[in-house]
């Protein structure tokens, strides 16, 4: 029984790791090899031709930079804006607090798939399609992130804030200097999750950009296949390796943190 389970699990591992290995193997092959023996696993030698072609067909660095800038800006803005909002919602007393909270929670159930058509028609006349603004600002606030920061702030004792006020600290100092370090695990999880998500995001950049200069990496790599003429799979897979490797490396390095971020997200 135990041995059977082990064999089954080894098969499972193969089903999940196999495709990655296949992707890497394909990317080192030549067109000739692909045509002659597409199912032979090992390339006759390690060629970088496919990579060279990807880098000459696409301004890979530019697209990677676009993706990184976009994902970083979104992550930073989300954290920076969730802090004061979460603080007000968790700690302060004011009229309309319930309404504000309900508004934030309502947006939890409205995904980009619902908003992209109207947002596209709103941004068009403003000349904002094909700009970094269209990629970043709609995600500058994460309803869920705001909620998570609020939850984390609830457990901070009021006395701490009162003491800081007595010391003459302004509210901004309290939020960004006193409270931010206390909710750092929440902020880190939020940033990590948001960065990985938006770095890989295909949906929103596809809808909001048509121009080369603002294109992000996932959109560009998907285009490799559309321009592709039939069997040039080694080039598509080379592009795919370029797209996947940073995320896989990040996953291997930060696996524990990512796991905690995902489960915390689910169980809160």
């Amino acid at each position: 029984m135990d041995r059977l389970v082990t064999v089954a699990l080894a098969l499972v591992a193969l089903v999940w790791v196999g495709p990655y290995l296949w992707m890497v193997a394909t990317s080192f092959k030549s067109l000739d090899e692909l045509v002659r023996a597409p199912a032979w696993p090992i390339p006759s030698r390690f060629r970088l031709d496919a990579y060279r072609e990807v880098f000459s067909a696409l301004p890979v660095w530019r697209y990677t930079l676009n993706s990184i800038v976009m994902a970083t800006l979104i992550g930073v803005l989300q954290a920076a804006l969730a802090l004061p909002a979460g603080y007000a919602l968790a700690k302060l007393e004011f009229t309309g607090k319930r309404v504000a909270f309900v508004l934030v929670m309502a947006c939890l159930i409205i995904p980009p798939q619902v908003t992209f058509v109207p947002v596209f028609t709103m941004l068009g006349p403003l000349g904002l399609v094909n700009t970094m603004t269209a990629l970043v600002v709609p995600f500058a606030v994460s309803a869920f992130g705001t909620f998570l920061v609020r939850q984390a702030m609830l457990s901070v004792p009021n006395e701490l804030i009162e003491a800081a006020r007595l010391d003459g600290a302004g509210e901004l100092t309290i939020i960004y200097r006193v409270l931010a370090p206390l909710v750092r695990p929440t902020l880190a999880a939020m940033f990590l999750f948001s960065f990985v998500y938006h770095y890989s995001d295909y949906f929103w950049p596809l809808m909001m950009t048509t121009d080369d200069h603002i294109r992000t990496l996932p959109v560009a790599v998907a285009l490799l296949r559309e321009q592709g003429t039939g069997v040039r799979w080694h080039i598509v897979m080379a592009g795919n390796v370029v797209l996947t490797m940073p995320v896989l490396v990040l996953f291997i390095v930060a696996q524990r943190r990512i796991l905690r971020a995902v489960t915390a997200r689910a169980l809160s």
């Binding site: 909002a85 007000a88 302060l92 508004l103 934030v104 409205i110 058509v117 709103m122």
Partner: peptide, 26 residues
Amino acid sequence: TFHPYAMLAPTLAVLALFCLVPLGVA
């Protein structure tokens, strides 16, 4: 008195603009 409103203003503005207004527009 205005502090909590100022703290929430950017968050609510973005959510309204990119989440609630689009629903109405659609």
